[in-house]
Structure formats: C-alpha cells, structure tokens
Design a protein around this nucleic acid. Sequence first.
RNA 1: AACCCGGUAGUGUAAUGGUAACACAACAGAUUUUGGUUCUGUUUUUCCAGGUUCGAGUCCUGGCCGGGUUACCA
Length: 560
Amino acid sequence: MNEPVAHRDFVRQIVEDDLRTGKWDGRIHTRFPPEPNGYLHIGHAKSICLNFGIAAEYGGKCNLRFDDTNPEKEDTEYVDSIMEDVRWLGFDWEDRLFYASDYFEQLYQWAETLIRLEKAYVCSLTLDEIRAGRGTPTEPGIASPWRSRTVDENLDLFRRMRAGEFPDGAHVLRAKIDMGHPHMLLRDPIMYRIRHAEHHRTGNQWCIYPTYDYAHGQSDSIEQITHSICTLEFENHRPLYDWYCQALGIHHPQQIEFNRLNLTYTMMSKRRLLELVKGNYVRGWDDPRIPTLRGLRRRGYTPEAIRAFCASVGVTKHNATMDMGVLENHIREDLNKRAERRMAVLDPVKVIITNYPEGQSEELPAVNNPEDAAAGTRSVPFSRELWIERDDFMVDPPKKFFRLAPGREVRLRWAYFITCTHIVQDSQGQVQEIHCTYDPATKGGDAPDGRKVKATLHWVSVPHAVTAEVRLYDHLFRTEDPDDVADPALDWKSNLNPNSLHTVSSAKLEPALGQAPQGARFQFERLGYFCVDADSTPERPVFNRTVTLKDQWAKEQVKS
RNA sequence: AACCCGGUAGUGUAAUGGUAACACAACAGAUUUUGGUUCUGUUUUUCCAGGUUCGAGUCCUGGCCGGGUUACCA
C-alpha cells in the first residue's frame, strides 16, 4: 500500500524551515521527557511518535529523558515500565537515556550564577505568604521582603539550604523577574524548594530540588535539543523557559506546543488513571479497559496499529477529541491483514444434524486468512452435534434477518448447507435444540446446483470443543465525555460503564485455539478480534476481545 | 477577571492571498463461503460584523464562543 502524501503538520513545517535556513546547522534533536510518576498511555504515544518520528524523518536524534525533579511522586517502577513501553511501541533511544536528576549539580551551579547576576534570591516567606504576595491576575503582586538580600547573603543561605540546615519549606530560591508582570508565572517564580525526601536515583544526596520550570529548559539545553516539543498546557511556561535560557546565556532550544490527544469514552489523566487503579475500579495498570499502553497491549492492540493511529491524528494548536472509533478502525485494519481466522461460539445453542450418522466425524479444511493466501489452511472437526451462536437463530425472524430460522437453509462456514427442520423449546420458550438436515453435496460450502443461501454461520463441533473464558470489553465510560455529569453532586466516576467488562465463562472454541500461546491474536469469525490473555493456561484458556467486527446487523437492530 | 492559545462538514484535519478538500462517521448500492474485507456513489463545511484586496478560510480591527494558566506538580 502506498503511503499517502503526508501533509506536514505545523511542527514539521517549523523543522523543515529550520533545516532550510540552517538555523541549527542542519541539526535536529528532540526528546521525549516523561515524568516517572505513572504509566504511559496512548496520549504519550502521540508525543513519542511525534518526537521520535521527526528525528527519524529528518535525520535527527531523539533522547529519552526522565523528568524526575519531584522525589515525592517518582519511582523506578515507573522508569522501568516507561522504557519497556517505549520499546514495545517500536522506538529506540540508543545510548541517549538521560535523567533530569543527572543535571542536579549543573542546575545548582547555574542557580548560583543567577544569584551572582542578581537574578535570583532566597525567599523565606511561607507558602501561603508567597501565594498571597503573588497578587491576582488583575492586581500586581507585592515584592517579598527578602527580595533585596545581598548576593553574599543569598549565596550563603542557598548553600546552607543545600547542606540541609533548614527544614522543608523554610526557604525557597526564587527568580527575580517582575512582581507586577501581567503574566503570573513571571512574578518571581520558584526555582528550588527544600524537600528532605529520598530520590529514586540520587537517594539522599540532595534535599533541595529544582522545579519543572527551572529544570526543563536547561535540561534541553544541556542535551543540545533543537526543538523542545510539548503539549499546549506549557504554552504559558514558554516565556519562563526562554527567560532562564537567556539569563544563563546557554544553548536555547525552541519550545513548540501541540495539542494533546483526547479520546471519547475514556480519559488520559494520569491522576485519574491512578485513582482507578488504586481504587480497584479496574484490575491494574494493564487492565484492557484503560488507555495505558500496557492496557492496550493486553487488550490485543499492536504497536503498528497504535503508530498508524498516532500518525493519523492531527498535530495542531487547538484542543480536539478523537473518536474512539478511529482507534478501533486502525486495529481492525491491521488485524484484518494479519490475524488468522478461527471459529468460536460465545453464546452457544445446540444444533443436531439429524441425517448425519451418530458417532461419526470428519476433518474439513478451513482457510486461515482470506486476506493472506500465505496463511494457509487448517482443519476443523465436524460432527452430528454442533454449537452455533444463539442469536444466529430466530423462531420468528423479522424481514431483514438472514440467518437460521425454521425451514430456512444456511451455510456452515467451510462445512455444509443445513436446513432447520424442527426446534425443541423449554417451557419458557427458550430454544434448547435446533434440528437440521445437511446436504452432503454441499461439502466445503458450495452447492453444485448453484443455489445460494443468504447467511454463513460459524460453528464448533460439540465433542471437539474447547471451553474457554472470554472477556468482552466495552467503553470504560458510558458517556463520550466522562466529565459530562448532570448531577453536580456526582463526579466523573459516576459515568464509569458498569458493563465495561462482561465475562463469558464457557465459550466454545474450535480445538486449534486450545494451544494458542499468550498474546496470540485471532479473528473469531463474524465476532471480532481476540487475543490470548496473560491469565490463560492450557487447562483454562482465557481470551480478550480486542474489538468487534463492524456489524451491519447490529446497526439494523438499533434502527428498529 | 488578567495573561496565553484556538475556532473550517457530525468528528479529526488540509488548503501557506487564487475553484473549500481529504479521512472517519452516516446513508445508498455492488461484490463476497465472515451482515467482515473490498469497490462505487450520496449527504453535510470556513463563528459573527466590518475593513484591506481584482480576489480573504487565510491579512487587519472589533465582537462572540471554547480551552489553558492563576501549585514550593509536571
């Protein structure tokens, strides 16, 4: 398939312009800078694809850098999972793995430089006093009484802060900018705070930690980044990013902000995802219902599908919410070409072929993937008693129902035409058995006389069937926007879909599925794409439904 | 409220002063041993008002609407 002529998003346009004008001497260097305080989700995938993608497309490099300046929230557990997920997605930072904490000493020295330049000072106000002194958007802040400390005094205090002489919160280091600035972030922002906390990498070496604003641009600078690509909420921070680089007179990358990814029926907030996991609303960070990369992986998503999706979403400067259906289409498109077909019955009802000899069975060849001749064939056992899907039969079918009904003939995939002759119902009217006759001349599924049937059903031989657990997933939330709550007393959690997981405990599978290894992906014919779950064992196979197939009949039912 | 950013079919995007277009969705049809896939067709668009210009989705002014920020988080 030909790649469509990719139009350039505005970030790539900037990169191309810079290449053309020689702005960075033809060098392109980006970075993906996650904070190790949570698991990566599909929103991060967009950023990863953008940063690593641009580097690859323009002959540049992309670093992986952990933005670990807040010891209280960060952990190696997250570092490890992030590296694993970036690799799984298909990207390689080679030897360029960095940590903002690697730069603590340099950052500290630069802070002293700023103090000497009288562009930073130690402020001994409390948190509340600082907040109050900052003013409001409409009124200017008031200068801290400590704003005019001498260079020597500031240096002495700052060094003693580092040496651990003060408790948490006793002092902070602030940039001396402008307390009357209309941009609140520029009203003497905090550069360092005292935190007697153990850092996941530097241990107890430090008790003062730089803030994001003070650390990020300089980290980019140290790594000689050219384009510092981040999400829209950092737009406000760009003046500060620029201020530090200029004040220090160091390499000054260009910060460019793009829109983060939003998807319907789910949410990307790390804080909320953490709440779902800790509150046991889901089964962990890899729960197939949440949009973490691990969740999607367990759900059966391929890195290729996620990358294709990320390439298709817009990179712009305005907030947008992608339809979950677009993501689903990408995995369908990928798996349609790659996943072998199998037959599985999720809600079984028994069919008895009354003219097929009792005790007899035969092996019938079945095509593994009509989209890929190289996938070959397998054989499936056929016998007198079969399972078919309960909703593939109706006693009194409406006009547009093409499947099995009394007196009607349909095809069993790769097997025979069968005609329903009789049904057995229980006292509630529930169908117990469907009695059919088969036409031996239609073996393989073609009628020599050329007669047509309107439906082809999937089926599984009763004596050969493997019983499995199948987990059917639906949207995490029942509303497109989780925040769409009518009652102000309720929060987003009230929109959680109570039916996001439906477990089928005894689905009937064709025997070939019994040996499938964990992670293997299949299309269950006419149902959807499924993969073998991590909980699966040979004794008790467990499958996850990745996504359903498009379903014209389901649409038809919704209409009526 | 102040500051920053943004408004193009239902959704996401393109058009970089020169015929408003693409993908998905929706709808209709063809093909089909999956009501899948594939193919064909149809419907629906520049927030508003002025201005500049031969010509404005694009530039300017004013409004309206939406988002972000107002943490010793990132």
